[in-house]
Amino acid sequence: MERAPGTAPDTASSDADRAAARRAGRRAGRITGGAQELDQRLADLLRGGLAAADRPGYGLWEETAARMVDAQAPGLAGRVRELGAIPDSGPGWPGRLLEECALLRLLDSAWLGRDRLPGPLAATVRTRVGLTSSAEGAAVRDRWLVLAQYDIPDGRIVTRRTWLYGRSSGRVSLLLSYGAPGRAPARALPVGTVVDAEVTSYPGGGGLRGELGPQFGEPLATTAPPPGGTTADALAAYGRALRDDPWLDAWPATLREVVPAPSGDGWQLVGAADGSALPVAPSALSRPGLWKLVALSGGGPLTVFGECGHRGFDPLAAWCAGTSEDEAPSAAVALT
């Protein structure tokens, strides 16, 4: 603490505020330095050609990512590190690498020009760069249906993602919590239950991320899936969400009456009514959840919740209608 001895207690908080503001200013300065450096490195890369990134022993990504960590911009560092995997991702990698380089440049130039951006977009940029913010929107009390919950190992920590659907508001909210490996990150909300609770959204990112506030009563089990739409609805929602956050890879969607069908080396979710289809995202093809989904369908239509984006549809939970008339629809089956 820098506070001088003898300072009156009532000025301590404003001192602390000033100190926090100074720290935030210093950090923003470092990030700006990092963003400028990143911009320069991307420009150099493009001048020489992306083909260089495919050569063995190419170390630019790791080194650049480390520079971004030094610049206290973990969001930029993470994106840079992901670029490193693209040259090994099979045919068509130059196009994908250009896409991600372009979006990275979009992000660092957005940071550098954030003063000219409208408030929500500026908030999105701050979050994407890696600044933490706090949930500050209005609290929405609703009966939230727990759609999916899964843990993603992320370096030394584990990120738990919980998807909620507000029965009355119709909103979908994503709760993120973090925990050390081997320890549960925050308490688990059972998939397929309904929780009466308040959820407050974080700024930016289309308001998707939320924070769970006070809960009223215990979670209740339910078998009713959220209302769903068509494959076209899911893609249209993703397209709309890109207006608020052009860096989004996917947006949550519930598909009604879709049938998993094999297609080439992969799988599709095909609308039973209109025959329109979304490819199952490559990341989901190797997960056991895909076969659960197929088994559950038995070739018939299901309601499927998942993330829909430019890589395809990543199924996270499914509901099937009862197999006979006197049977209730099945409870949600987690596919993660």
Partner: peptide, 24 residues
């Protein structure tokens, strides 16, 4: 890169469903 970013976001925003394969 700026032109590529515009291409990328525009293409992603304009994605449409494919015609489904034969159902099992």
């Amino acid at each position: 890169l700026d032109t590529a970013a515009l291409h990328t976001v525009r293409r992603r925003a304009a994605l449409r469903p494919a015609t489904g394969a034969a159902l099992p």
